[in-house]
Design a protein around this nucleic acid. Structure first.
Lengths: 282, 282
DNA sequence: ATGATTATGAAACTACAGTTTCATAAGTCA
DNA sequence: TGACTTATGAAACTGTAGTTTCATAATCAT
């Protein structure tokens, strides 16, 4: 990300010298090169000297190349999540939207799973096993996912709940939590202010917290969580997708199942017996 | 992009030393750091020495840090977003489960989207646009997905609800539906007997029904639905995954957005104004 | 065409990235 | 506990990134 640099170059492009234009075109083609390459490499790519490259940044108002690079890093770190990164397309190009959508989902799933440490899941499964109760918490979009998580995990074990505070009655819900319980927090942006308060309470209760979140929130989540699982999200426009978060939940469930196959088996048999007795399904 | 490095680290994570794990965690958090930062900076971020960092890459099989960086650059330039080019080598049965799980998710997503008729989505978007109200319905696991669907679509337009019949008060909920309303049914197995009763009522009301379901139920859904979208599901054991269903929902939302960009834009602005006024988010 | 100004790149210079060596701390084993 | 092995980081060393200087080429104005 080097938007500010790009804008600065654009506003004086007409006045650039021949060599400067060579450099500018390199950045226009791929602005991430600012972060990934040295000034010496950029000069070579543009076919100009190191001296010219250094001067170019000076004429743009920067102290030195390091300032340019730092700015680009800051832009990347501070990227606004609700930027409309997906231009609205007309009806005519919908098949294009379809393949883009699929590609995005596949990429995010792949990248999310590439980043999982192999020892983390058994660890999480052990944590879950040792918990007297498991609590799911999610706000906004994630409320529905938390509901599904609760649904899945009740198949695996006893004592699985969702904190939902019907009618904003948080105290009643929290009064049922205890030490060593596990809180599974599902959280993408935006987050309510209430979350901090709930987390503080959870920590005081000595609950253990497993957070499934996006990469930007992960460092913060690390501070209050025992485990953090980061997901790549499709994008941060008005229509985020939770496929990765959902897939991650299932993976945790699989890890738990892997360590507790017998107990889970017994529980499923029990659930099936109950369903038969109720006789409410087709 | 540094997928190969990440995978290499993952396969020997359990055997890493304390300092090496510090480094590994840095890369897991943000693998693009490999490209954007110097080895010296990475060492500082991890809180280890330059020497340890250099040795870490040597133990992973690289000649030096430059080789690591070049590999990462090559991966970026040649990006295969969703092909797992190197299977995770065995740390135990769980990493096997992990790659199997990912494989399954990717396959189901791909196959589901390959099968979508290209004219169906614009048609569905038009149906949704013409509906006075949109109702989401899901049971069991799908209840949470329905909730998320409602959450997403309320961003796009007015008049979006979830039929949930708090306290089994179905009659009250259904009394609010009307002709030309759209019912979005999200349904995997098992299905409650109640569903047939509700569907019969919906047909009598002259609601139009869009069903997202699995391939086995699709023929039956065709009988009462205006549109049917079939999903490949991970499997039909105790831990089904809804990633495809969720992704399909998002796709419909994108299709709607594509046809109604201006109206959606205005609505988003309104929602943002409301959020600002409420000031409940971080 | 000439003189002045600007732009460029090679070379000099300074700072530091990355690798290797060496001393010592930490961990393991009998 | 002592001996041995492994891991770590400070320091030494080599190579080079980035900045500045200087000589010359290119451009502009008269």
């Amino acid at each position: 990300m080097a938007s500010r640099l790009i804008l600065r170059i654009q506003e004086r492009f007409a006045r650039l010298t021949s060599s400067e234009k060579k450099l500018a075109n390199i950045f226009f083609e791929n602005q991430t090169l600012i972060e990934t390459h040295t000034a010496t490499e950029l000069a070579a790519l543009a076919g100009v000297s190191k001296a010219t490259t250094a001067r170019f940044f000076r004429t743009l108002g920067y102290t030195d190349f390091d300032e340019v690079r730092l700015q680009a890093r800051e832009e990347r770190n501070r990227r606004e999540p609700y930027v409309q990164s997906e231009p609205v397309k007309g009806v005519g190009s919908l098949s294009h939207t379809l393949s883009e959508h699929l590609e995005l989902e596949l990429r995010n799933l792949s990248r999310t799973f590439e980043e999982i440490r192999s020892d983390l899941l058994p660890e999480i499964a052990r944590t879950l096993k040792s918990a007297p109760r498991i609590w799911f918490l999610g706000f906004g979009d994630e409320y529905g996912i938390a509901r599904l998580g609760r649904s899945l995990f009740t198949r695996l074990r006893h004592g699985v709940h969702q904190i939902e505070a019907t009618g904003e009655d948080w105290a009643s819900e929290l009064s049922m939590t205890g030490p060593r319980d596990v809180l599974i927090l599902l959280s993408f942006s935006p987050r309510p202010r209430l979350l901090s308060v709930l987390l503080a309470y959870a920590r005081t209760t000595r609950m253990r917290i497993i957070t499934i979140t996006d990469h930007r929130y992960a460092p913060q989540a690390q501070r209050f969580s025992d485990h953090v699982l980061s997901c790549h999200v499709a994008n941060y426009d008005i229509l985020p997708t939770h496929a990765t978060m959902l897939s991650m939940l299932r993976l945790i469930a699989l890890a738990y199942l892997g360590q507790n196959a017998e107990a889970v088996s017994r529980r499923i048999a029990t659930l099936e017996a109950i369903n038969e007795e109720l006789d409410l399904s087709e």
